[in-house]
Design a protein around this nucleic acid. Structure first.
Lengths: 209, 209
DNA sequence: ACAGTATTGACCAGTCTGGTCAATTTGGTT
DNA sequence: AACCAAATTGACCAGACTGGTCAATACTGT
């Protein structure tokens, strides 16, 4: 999966990947412009089409690349022995932040690929992901259930709702952090983590027995 | 503000408005296509440019129209005597749902206008809104503070965070309801309201003394 | 000096852009 | 029916932008 770009200068490689990811994250396949990609990556048109035979192949290889990163990040780097749900969510948030340092729009891109139906010639992108061995539903189940000790919750009758509230809150927190970014482009990770931990403490005190 | 469309058949009027709102909500100004708008509205190209001298004017009048609806909805129809924050948020959620029945992408459109800088020739859209007499910051402050009784919260030290968690949870709930929509296009409002009320009860029990 | 690869950007035909306008349809008034 | 003004159409335009090509050039190690 990585060998798409072998030999290329890593800086230039990431510039191309990021420019492409950003373009496909911002616009649906048809409106995404290869001209914009090369402009933002600072390379010539010819170079892009030297490495990718056409737009469609670029798009699919990009998905392959993202899968590989996701798989490594989410599946392999989570501590699956952790039984505390909030701690697990914290791990995911931290992984997300770290990946975003190198590939800022990777998660946006992934979400977009799942939202838009029929990007390019691909009818079902979830199936494409599965073809790469990545099953979103399965991963999602694992994240929220594998080895998790739900007896920690104070009210056993509203566990499902409590989990959602915790999940939603931390997701929104992350989104608002990203909005604060915008202008200068760089996020203060230390401060973001501190804020995250603060909210996590409150959520624990609120929902745990 | 409403007199832009006087005399036009209301059905056709809303078809044009909705098609335009949807297009500008989906794409930034430059990539939004007037051809797509007329196609989705089911009217001819000429008609659109008969009522709006050009794309830029269409965009600005659309903003004017949205402001008028927002102003009416949020400012005039909220019960400002209500002192319970969660009840106030509920009112806003219901208003949002009701407006979305007629103009499904109005709130998306509004958020997009605020996110993208320099749409068309407009440098600062917040200023444009202010020009129409609509101050987002002021409205936002009012919604979360005017006449609200914050002594209801259990822990006085984490009021700010609690408010955010409540707000975020209900926003995310709404967003997930919209994602369930997608396919058939129509949302079951009664069920959505029931779900909303359910979460509101839990949030009250959780955060109020 | 040579070979081979990386890289460029002018160039292409085709599509889509915002916008125009003469021609037609519509609805109301006499 | 006859007329008019307003509503509505869609073929048409020049220009911008599309994905993609390719001969020419720069760069690299030998």
């Amino acid at each position: 999966m990585d060998d798409i770009f072998t030999g290329m200068d890593p800086d230039k490689r990431d510039r191309i990947i990021n420019a492409a990811i950003e373009e496909f994250a911002a616009y649906p396949y048809d409106k995404a412009s290869t001209n914009s990609i090369v402009k933002n990556a600072g390379v010539s048109k010819g170079l892009l089409f030297h490495y990718f035979e056409n737009k469609q192949v670029l798009y699919e290889k990009l998905i392959g690349f993202v899968i590989q990163k996701l798989f490594d990040a989410i599946v392999n780097r989570i501590d699956w022995r952790e039984s505390d749900l909030i701690e697990r969510i914290r791990q995911i948030a931290l992984i997300k932040m770290e990946v975003s340092k190198t590939y800022p729009h990777m998660f946006d891109f992934m979400m977009k690929t799942l939202t838009y139906k029929r990007a390019g010639n691909i009818d079902d992108i979830v199936e494409l992901y599965k073809g790469y061995g990545f099953d979103f539903q399965k991963v999602n189940e694992d994240v929220f259930s594998r080895n998790i000790d739900y007896s920690k919750f104070r009210d056993p009758e509203t566990i499902r709702e409590s989990v959602n509230i915790v999940r939603w809150s931390l997701e929104k927190f992350g989104e608002e952090q990203l909005l604060l970014l915008g202008n200068d482009g760089k996020l203060d990770f230390a401060q973001a983590v501190a804020g995250l931990d603060h909210y996590m403490d409150i959520l624990k005190k609120t929902f745990y027995a």
